[in-house]
Design a protein around this nucleic acid. Structure first.
Lengths: 391, 391
DNA sequence: ACTACTTAGTATGTTTACTAAACATTCTAC
DNA sequence: GTAGAATGTTTAGTAAACATACTAAGTAGT
C-alpha cells in the first residue's frame, strides 16, 4: 500500500505529458502539498496551509483534517493570536508511520527504525557480508526491524554502494560482490511495503539537502574516504539519470596515473584523490577516518599529496558541477579531517576551471550531515516517495 | 495567453510537491495527454486515445472534441474497420497555431514561421549583429515574422549562443557581446505571446530528440564546429540545470594545453578539439564546414590531430555522459565530415573511460537533425511548453 | 440475407473534490 | 464593551472524470 505516492519519472523541463490526471490524483497532490507545508513550517495552522497552498480555507481545512485522520499530522495546541481567533497548530505526527532504513556501505551493515520526524527509534548492526549472504542479511535485518514498530510501516529504504538501476532497483556493486542483484525482490520476502533502493552517496545527498539551512535548491554531496562517490540534488530533485551510474565520478578515467583503482583499472579519481590513496601516497599508515586524516594533515611531507588531491578533485568536480549546473558542493566523510586549506583549494580550483559566468555562486563546504546520513537519507527518500515530504 | 502550459519546474525524482492541483489543471493535463497521443500515433481515433490514456471513452471523446474546437486537431477521414464501426481519424491541425522561431547562432540571424507539424512556412535572414543592435534585430525580426501568419501565434522560441538563465531567460554570450541581456523583455516589445529563450545547442538537442527513431529517452547533442557546445535530453526532459551553463563542456578547463580559447583562457575542450582548432593544428586553411572538414580528413598529416581530438572529446564526454547517465551521443555540425573512424574512436574512448557497467549501451552517432535543428528545436520547445507535445 | 458479434462513439446521470460565500468563534485594540 | 480581525466551518454550487447503457456501423458465419 502506498499512501501518497506519485508515479516515478518527472523531469526538469518536461517535453510531454505522460499520465492521466484524475480527481483522486488531485486530492493526493493537495494532501501532499498540505503535509509538506506542515513539515516545512511546523507547527502550522489550517489558515496558514490555506494561504501557502493558495487553496481555499475550506479545502485546506478538509485536507488537514484528513491528514490528522490518517495520523500523518496531529494538533499540538493553540498558537498566539494575531489579532483574532488564535490558530490551532498542527504538526507532523512522529509515530504516525515508521520507516525501516538500511545502510550497507560500511564495514558493518546498519539498520534502523526511523520515525516521521527523522528520529532513529531503534538500530541494529550486522557483520557486513557479500553476494547471496549479503542479500540474506538484508532480508533478516528487515524482518528483525519489523518487530515492535512504533507505527505502521511506511516502507523500506536501502542505501547501498554500487550502481542502482533507477527503475528496477537492481544493484551492481564491486564491494558487495553483487552483479545485477535484485535487492527489491529479496526485501519483498520480508515485507510487502514499498522498497526503495538507492546508492549510498545519493542517500547521503538527500539527507544533506534536508539538513542544510537555509535550503539550497541544488547540491552535490561528495563522499571521500576509502573510495569516492557522489550524489546530486538538482532543483529540489534527486538526480539519478537513466542508468543509475550518475554518482560514480570516482571511476571516470580522466587522469594519467598508473596507480591501480579498486575497480581494477587506473586513472580513476578514486585512485588518485581518495583519502586512502593520499595516505598511501604520503607513505603513512593512518586509518581512513576523520581522525586518521587529521593526523595525516598535520604531517609536513603530506602537504604536496593533499594539494595534488585537491587539484585533481577540483578538475573532476568542475566537470560534474558544470554539467549538472550545481552551485553547492558538500564534502562528506573522512575528508573532513583536511580542514579549511583543502576546502578553499578545491573551491578555487573548481571556480578556475568552469566557464567564468557567475562562478562566485559556487561554494564548497564540508557536509552538515553526519555519519547517519545514509540511513536518514534512505529513510528520507521513502518519506518523499510515499508522502511527498522532505523533513 | 498560454494554451496548455504547465508551470516551470518538475524533476527526475521529485522530493516534494510544489503546486496545488485543481480541476482545471486536471483538464489541462488530460487535454495535453490526448493531444500528445494524437501527435505520436497520428492519425488516431477517439477510441485509441481512450485506450492509450486509460481514460474512459466518454472523457477521451470529450477531450478530442475540445481539441478540435481549439483547432489543435482536426478530423481527417475514416479508418479501416477492425471488425466493427470504422474509426473517425483525428490528426494534428497544421495551421491551428503558428510559432515564430529564431536562430542567432550562425553568421546570419535566421527566423522562421513554423506550423504545428514542424513545417517551416516562411523564413527571414538578417545580418548578425552584437550588443544592443542584436537585440533590436531580434525585435525587428519578430515584428516582421508576425505578419501574414497562417494561424494564431502560439509563442516565440529563440535559440541563442551563450548561457541562458533558465528562469529569467537572461543571456550572457561572448559571441553576441551580451552581458546579462534581457532577451525576453526585448521580444515582448514585439509580441505579447510567451517567449522562450534557449541555448542553441539545447534547442538542437530537443530537435534531435524529436527526430531520432525509435525515440531514445536520453541523448546528448554535441555541436562541434568553430566552437563546442552541447545539450541534453534526459528521460524525455530537456536538462538545463539551475544555472543554464549545463551545455558548456567546451569551456571546462581540463586539458594541459597552452592554445588560447575563444573564452580568453586555455585548456578548454574547444581550444583543443573544435574543428577550428584541429584545422589550425594541422596547418590547413579549410573553412569550418562539413565540406572543409571532409577535405581536412582526406589529408594524410591531419590524422594524428584528428585522433587526438577524438581522444580529448572522449575524455570530456565520458564525464558529461557518466554524470548525466546518458547513453546516446549525437555529434552535430561540421564534425560530421570526419566520418566513421572518428565516430568509433570517440565511442571507444568514452566506453573505456566510464565505469564498466553496461558500457555497451553507450552509442555515439552523427546527428540525424540537420541545419535547421536550432530553429525547429526552439519551435519545438515552444510547442512542448505551451501544448505538452513533441512532434 | 439474416443473425451474431465487434468496435466506435454518445447520452445520461453519479461521484468527487475544489470553490464561493456566508457565518460562527474567539481573540485584540481602543 | 464594541468594532474589527483572524481562524475555521457550514452550505450550496460546479467542473470534470466515471459508470452505465445506449446507438451506429461495420465484419463474419451460415
Amino acid at each position: 500500500m502506498t499512501y501518497l505516492g506519485t508515479p516515478a519519472g518527472g523531469g526538469l523541463i518536461p517535453l510531454t505529458t505522460e499520465v492521466k490526471a484524475t480527481r483522486g490524483q488531485t486530492r493526493i497532490n493537495n494532501l501532499r502539498l498540505a503535509l509538506q507545508i506542515i513539515y516545512r513550517d511546523q507547527p502550522a495552522s489550517r489558515a496558514h496551509v490555506a494561504r501557502e497552498s493558495a487553496l481555499t480555507p475550506a479545502t485546506a481545512s478538509d485536507l488537514v483534517d484528513e491528514l490528522i485522520t490518517m495520523k500523518l499530522a496531529q494538533e499540538v495546541g493553540t498558537g498566539p493570536s494575531a489579532g483574532g481567533k488564535p490558530p490551532t497548530l498542527v504538526a507532523p505526527h512522529p509515530d504516525g508511520r515508521t520507516i525501516i532504513a538500511l545502510d550497507l556501505s560500511g564495514e558493518e551493515f546498519i539498520g534502523a527504525q526511523v520515525n516521521l520526524v527523522a528520529g532513529i527509534v531503534a538500530t541494529l548492526g550486522r557483520p557486513a557480508a557479500t553476494g547471496t549472504a549479503a542479500l540474506n542479511t538484508v532480508t533478516g535485518m528487515i524482518a528483525e526491524l519489523s518487530k515492535d514498530l512504533p507505527g505502521p510501516l511506511l516502507g523500506v529504504g536501502i542505501g547501498t554502494p554500487g550502481v542502482v538501476d533507477p527503475v528496477s532497483g537492481i544493484v551492481t556493486s564491486v564491494n558487495l560482490r553483487w552483479d545485477h542483484a535484485d535487492v527489491v525482490e529479496a526485501a519483498r520476502t520480508a515485507t510487502d511495503t514499498p522498497v526503495h533502493v538507492v546508492n549510498d552517496a545519493h542517500a547521503a545527498a538527500v539527507h544533506e539537502y534536508a539538513v542544510i539551512v537555509p535550503r539550497v535548491p541544488n547540491i552535490a554531496l561528495v563522499e571521500i574516504g576509502t573510495g569516492i562517490g557522489s550524489g546530486y540534488v538538482v532543483g529540489g530533485h534527486l538526480y539519478r539519470g537513466d542508468l543509475g551510474a550518475t554518482g560514480e565520478i570516482g571511476h571516470i578515467r580522466q587522469f594519467d596515473d598508473s596507480r591501480l583503482c579498486s575497480c581494477g583499472r587506473s586513472g580513476c579519481l578514486e585512485a588518485v584523490a581518495s583519502m586512502k590513496a593520499v595516505i598511501e601516497a604520503a607513505g603513512s599508515h593512518h586509518p581512513v577516518t576523520v581522525e586518521g586524516v587529521k593526523e595525516l594533515a598535520a604531517e609536513e611531507n603530506a602537504a604536496p599529496h593533499i594539494e595534488r588531491a585537491a587539484d585533481d578533485l577540483g578538475l573532476a568536480l568542475a566537470a560534474a558541477v558544470s554539467v549538472l549546473g550545481i552551485t553547492h558542493v558538500s564534502l562528506w566523510g573522512p575528508v573532513a579531517g583536511l580542514g579549511e586549506s583543502f576546502r578553499s583549494r578545491v573551491e578555487a580550483e573548481i571556480r578556475d576551471r568552469v566557464l567564468p559566468v557567475d562562478t562566485d555562486q559556487i561554494h564548497v563546504r564540508y557536509a552538515t550531515a553526519g555519519q547517519d546520513a545514509v540511513i536518514l537519507g534512505a529513510a528520507g527518500l521513502v518519506l518523499s516517495a510515499e508522502l511527498g515530504v522532505v523533513w
